[in-house]
């Protein structure tokens, strides 16, 4: 990797002073499960690495009237160990358990999961975020795209968001706190993920001088939620498609629904169509299937990944039935 300066601030304020105005000047180090690999492969070449491990403000999970406040540096294991999370946010538990490496769960953080770079193998092999050859030719459409996007892929970005927790947090209506030297701003989890149009952009709404500090998950208040991941292996493996859902019911009918898919698009994919298909209806196998069909109706598969449409439908259906306690 390229030589870099290492900084370990003790406070957020100190950390802000260490960040750059441009990407490439400084990278944040959270759990370190991916950044070091990116640096070894010269995909990231930061001049400075700012470790957040010493910043106390980013740690811990607190419950308050507006919901659960999860520090960005909370590890996946800490998240899984939290009693309230286990009781009320099944979808988060299932998503975190989907990271099937105990080592990564022990080191990896909630903030790191949300901000991680895509796993697109062209990107990781040095062809840039948008997977182009030197002459600008896009490699994904005619290349090895079995794991690439089937939704939201009409632009140059064909990778899939790798975040495990993103879909669950969006479905639960979480808000993210993003801080910089000039103050805090709040972003809906749904708005945090972006589809870049140029290779220098990022996949999340974060500027080089900002830090994701906290995730606030609104009170579950009876919201039924679940995540289902379609994965080939039990051992460490990326899911092929996932879905996180959150439902409110009134009597036996669904009064509101969020259906968010993962690993199918450059961002977590919040399907209004699936939600619409559910509202006002009872949740059962048939309505779950209808929601799945609605979620994937607009899919635009690439040459090798049409099978992911079916997998994504299954993820939606099974997540819905799990949330309803019918799986």
């Amino acid at each position: 990797m390229q030589a870099f300066e290492y900084a370990k601030p003790a406070t957020l304020k100190e950390a802000f002073g260490l960040l750059g105005a441009q990407w490439g000047e400084a990278d944040l180090l959270a759990g370190g499960t991916d950044l070091l690999s990116l640096m070894k492969d010269y995909i990231h070449k930061p001049k400075r690495v700012v470790s957040l491990t010493g910043v106390k403000e980013l740690k811990g999970i607190k419950s308050s009237s507006d919901g659960l406040h999860i520090g960005a540096m909370v590890t996946l294991e800490e998240l899984l160990g939290n009693a309230q999370v286990r009781k009320e946010y099944l979808s988060l538990v299932q998503a975190a358990r989907g990271v099937t490496s105990p080592q990564i769960r022990a080191m990896g953080t909630v903030g790191g999961d949300l901000c991680q770079r895509p796993r697109c193998w062209y990107f990781r092999n040095g062809f840039g975020l948008l997977a182009r050859e030197g002459d600008g030719k896009e490699l994904v459409p005619n290349g090895e795209n079995r794991y690439h996007a089937i939704l939201g892929n009409s632009g140059p970005a064909k990778f899939v968001s790798a975040s495990s927790l993103g879909p669950a947090l969006i479905a639960l209506g979480a808000k993210l706190t993003i801080a910089s030297g000039s103050g805090n701003r709040n972003v809906d989890a749904d708005k945090f993920f972006l589809t870049p149009n140029d290779p220098a952009s990022r996949e999340v709404d974060l500027k080089p001088n900002e830090i994701l500090t906290e995730i606030v998950v609104p009170p579950a208040a009876g919201t039924k939620n679940a995540t289902y991941e379609v994965r080939q292996k039990e051992a460490l493996d990326w899911p092929l498609a996932t879905a996180s859902v959150a439902l409110k019911t009134s009597g036996s009918t669904v009064s509101s629904a969020k259906v968010v898919l993962g690993h199918v698009a450059p961002t977590p994919w919040n399907s209004a169509e699936a939600a619409q298909a559910l509202v006002g209806k009872p949740l059962n196998e048939s309505t779950a299937k209808a929601a799945a069909e609605a979620a994937l109706a607009g899919a635009t598969p690439l040459s090798q990944n049409r099978y992911k449409i079916q997998l994504a439908k299954v993820a939606v259906k099974r997540a819905l039935l799990a949330a309803a306690g019918k799986a």
Partner: peptide, 12 residues
């Protein structure tokens, strides 16, 4: 790499 060159684990 060992991420997408997939090997089964004990659970598989």
């Amino acid at each position: 790499d060992m991420e997408f060159y997939k090997l089964g684990g004990i659970g598989d």
